[in-house]
Amino acid sequence: MHLDIPKLSFVDSIAKELKTKELVIITGLPGSGKTELAHQIVQALTNIITTKEKLANFQHIHDLKNLDFVINEDKMIFLILDHCIKSWFNKTVIDDMFKKLKSSTKKTKGMVHALVCVPDILLEAFKSSLKSSSFKNVIYDLKDGNIYKDEDWKVIFDSHLKSKNEMMKSLKYQKTDIDAWRQSFIEIQAGDIGKPTLAKLLFEDARNFQNVSNFLQNTHECIMNRISALSESTCVSERRHFVVLVMLMLNNGKLNTDELNKDALADICKSFDVEDVNLFEQLEYPEIGQNAKMVTVHCRETVRVTFDVLWKKRKDLVFKYCDDTVFLELVSLTEGMTDQELIALNDRFQSIFRSMKGKFHVEDHNVASKLLRK
């Protein structure tokens, strides 16, 4: 479920930069609000562009191959590159992307402006590629403590608080408690997860309010411990909870229960000693939403952590059943893998290369490159 957050204090200034620059890069930790910020910038641009100027054309690029499109030269073109930028990209991929962007810019005499959301792990590679380009660019690093203001953190916290109004009423917390938690959120420094997602995760589960300070300071560890405990529980209902999370993770956080991979479900249920009968009926787990046959994970971080838990326990299930997109995004070449696991990992990559033939540089995945060197 998308949460509408009021416009943040710095959005208009970035929108004005994008109107005058060929390239604006937004970078930050996973969960730092890049996608929400891109959405707000697009909305702000529609207000900044005056009726005296040529109408703008906004294009969300879902696959980098689409950068070869035919451009209407009578309009300003704003390209939004967000989900198409993958954390596994290497410099070859990034250089090729910049070449395509430059070609588009030349075709339209400089009327193309690109907003690119870049995972922080790729920032140095992007900077390196920019050195050899002539793009007029600016980079906004959301880890910079001077971008988000205290008022922005308050807006984000209160937006999630409002969305969980009924839950908070049922918990019967006092205003002084909520004020203290809000202040703790404003003051906390982000670790492995961006602060906007910390707020989302905090309000996802009532148990997090048992020790708000600890949860905000150790969010990843708290979620990892909780999901690991589900997988190892002696309680069948908790192991069922874990299996549901695994099935959702393997399907990139969203699935239609009519389209379940029954072999995968049977295998995973057997692995964790769970009956697969009526597994997806009347789900009431805090991390999950259900609308008829559609089941989704509320937060991307839950997908990441579930992947990490299963990766440690049963890599073979990841190799065999994981969605290609999730696999490419989250797989890592960890030390200590057995020869058999390395062979299985290579086999999975080769299968992906065959199934995604023609996709933008998928064969240049950084883990696949390391694997070949081994």
Rank of each mutant, 00 (worst) to 15 (best):
S128D: 06
V212F: 09
C235A: 15
V155P: 04
S233A: 09
S103Y: 14
R226W: 08
G145I: 10
L37F: 01
S159R: 06
L345N: 01
K99A: 12
V274P: 04
D150R: 11
K270H: 14
L265Q: 10
L216C: 01
K200V: 04
K313Y: 03
V42D: 01
V367I: 08
N346S: 15
R304P: 12
Y321C: 10
D339R: 10
D273I: 15
L283C: 03
S32N: 13
F280P: 04
Q40N: 11
V331Q: 02
K19Q: 08
E204A: 15
N211Q: 03
I288T: 06
I49T: 05
R239V: 10
K19S: 13
K270V: 02
G145T: 14
S231G: 00
D82Y: 09
A266P: 11
E363G: 08
Q290E: 04
L37K: 11
M76V: 08
K172I: 08
I61P: 09
L101Y: 08
N346V: 03
I188G: 08
P30V: 04
I288Q: 13
S87W: 05
T92D: 15
D324P: 09
I26R: 07
I5P: 10
I80R: 08
L115N: 12
G194F: 00
K75F: 12
K127G: 06
Q189S: 14
K359L: 13
C84P: 01
N214Y: 05
E36A: 13
L142Q: 02
V70M: 02
G289C: 05
K195R: 13
C117H: 08
E124Q: 04
V138C: 01
V236W: 10
F215H: 00
R240D: 12
